[in-house]
Write a protein that binds this DNA or RNA. Structure first.
Lengths: 182, 182
DNA sequence: CTTACCATGTAAGGCGTTACATGATTCA
DNA sequence: TGAATCATGTAACGCCTTACATGGTAAG
């Protein structure tokens, strides 16, 4: 297993817990995994297809509704694939904050502009933090229901601590710039 | 200015402070901007070329050495382009941590494996933090030399506070998993 | 003399987003 | 009946990384 496509692994990981539709996978990306991974429909559906062709997942039509609904389940090969990936050291650490770019070049336009970017960022993060805290409460309430919940909680805690640090920085940076940056 | 390619902006931003070669730009990416943006030679050189063709940067051969050396400077149009970009709200906030993916799916292999991933992460971050603290010291020592230094310092502070939060999480997560995750 | 670093670039190919296209169902 | 959400997908296109290819220079 040299260069696995990470989306293969993420989706297989989700499927290893329960069978899901493409739509549901996207939901997970936008909620549970949102603070550290993302994906669009345009990558999810083709990936699901590839997984099927390689025998790592199988689809079965959900006949419970009239609506077209394709549910994907992991195969034993898929399961082996995830486990193998989970054992390898993690290589991808990527962060891209356009806001920080604008702060870095902030001298060009001055403190007013920079403060605006910080405020916008602060508001975004505050919202993310609220969402994560809600998830934290839910997870804490059902920790013993499933061993996996402890691991989910760990990633939520990571997000919370990170976002708190962001907010602390926002305050520090705001003071610094308000006092003339010295 | 609808969808600017961010690398255009980053490079132009760097050039707005001083004329640089492609190699020097890559250096900045790997040091100063490293904690919140990245780029490879394979994207830097072609971008520099595009910037030239659009009249946003000009190149002048550096005759001071026998070695081939192409230094790029920003044009007034390039400068206007950066300023305009700096005024727009930031849109890109991207974080991808493969380590967190492996923690999220951690129940699959158990606490031992998860702890290994955490330890590796912790070591990486500790190194990054050391590098950032060194940059912080340097910047603090020459804050008044250039107004831009205050803004650079702000981004370094962001990295430091973020990484400290990561390390705090590592400790929390390690205790949690060592005590059986409850 | 050879290692490390300076220096520039290209080609192939992967990965992923955006926008588009379509339609069912539920709820107010 | 209209809006929101459920649900699946494709096509175009852009962006970037990796690997490759080449050579100069400085220091030990």
């Amino acid at each position: 297993m040299a260069k696995e496509k990470k989306l293969d692994c993420v989706i297989l990981g989700l499927l290893s817990h329960e069978a899901l539709t493409g739509y549901e996978i996207k939901k997970r990306m936008d909620t549970t995994l949102h603070s550290f991974w993302g994906a669009s429909y345009g990558s999810i559906y083709p990936t699901l297809n590839g997984l099927m062709k390689r025998g790592l997942a199988i689809q079965h039509m959900d006949a419970s509704t009239k609506r077209q609904k394709i549910r994907y389940a992991i195969t034993p090969q898929g399961h082996a694939y995830v486990k193998d990936w989970l054992k390898q050291p993690a290589t991808i650490h990527e962060v891209r904050y356009e806001m920080l770019l604008k702060i870095f070049f902030g001298a060009e336009l001055g403190a007013e502009q920079a403060l605006k970017h910080i405020r916008a960022f602060q508001e975004d993060i505050q919202q993310e933090l609220t969402a994560l805290r809600a998830m934290e409460d839910i997870l804490k309430a059902c920790l013993q229901e499933d061993k996996a919940h402890s691991y989910y909680l760990l990633t939520v805690r990571f997000g919370i601590q990170t976002y708190q640090a962001y907010l602390a920085w926002c305050e520090e940076a705001t003071s610094f710039l308000s006092e003339g940056g010295n």
